[in-house]
Design a binder for these strands. Sequence first.
DNA 1: TGATTATGACTAC
DNA 2: TAGTCCTAATCAA
Length: 271
Amino acid sequence: MPEGHTLHRLAAEHQRVFGGRPVGAGSPQGRFAAGAAEIDGRVLVAADAHGKHLLLEFDDDRVLHVHLGIYGTWRFGEPPVPEPQGAVRLRLTGAGGYADLRGPNACELLEPGGVKLLRDRLGPDPLRADADPDRAWARISRSRTSIAALLMDQSVIAGPGNIYRAEVLFRQGIDPMLPGRALSRERWSAVWADLVVLMAEGVRSGRIDTVRPEHTPEAMGRPPRVDDHGGEVYVYRRAGSPCLVCGTAVAAAELAARNLFWCPGCQPPAG
DNA sequence: TGATTATGACTAC
DNA sequence: TAGTCCTAATCAA
């Protein structure tokens, strides 16, 4: 279940397993049968990620666009290739292994023009070298919308999801309800820089760890607590538990149909 | 067996 | 804001 760091890992994995060689493609589930047939036998030229979107470019200039949504997964395996289990939308096979795609929000073939349209509607991605945080700032600094909602808007900033959103606001001591236009440029720069560091670490490790060394379980003399998502965090899904820094009970609320977590002590209003 | 939940995002009203 | 879509794991009954 993916935020942007997962997609960058997946792009690298596709490149490693399939890059530069012909790829076999099929749709055991049947829902992408026509698309898979067009990919089948093509050479994977490039694998890229922008925000939560995976882009696999084949040698006919067409690009497979996959968006996992909440449920989607890619699962890689080594030969021998087993019978598909469950609803496999797309299976890619190559000399180096295979990959099964289940439950994607989007799985489609795009022409180069379609890829440009997609990229144009995405904000800067902290994990991309070509990212320009000023583009996000231009939107945020003019917006009355809460910074919590803006950080989840992929046309403002592409890649962070609910966990990075909650955690970066905690680490920067920012009230989630603060309107974007009330955020100073300096604080936005700090948020961006923190996301770059946190998400790059996520790409490296494959999990979301946001707790600073001085607040880790070892440093604080408490038992380790790793969330289901596989990382150590300050506030995400910790509602009711004491804040690791100040002891205040972590708060939770539903905002735009998503769960929001924050520490009222460390992230006071007008902070 | 069925309800619930999830790191997302679209559309319609 | 509500409804919809996609899947699998978990937990209750």
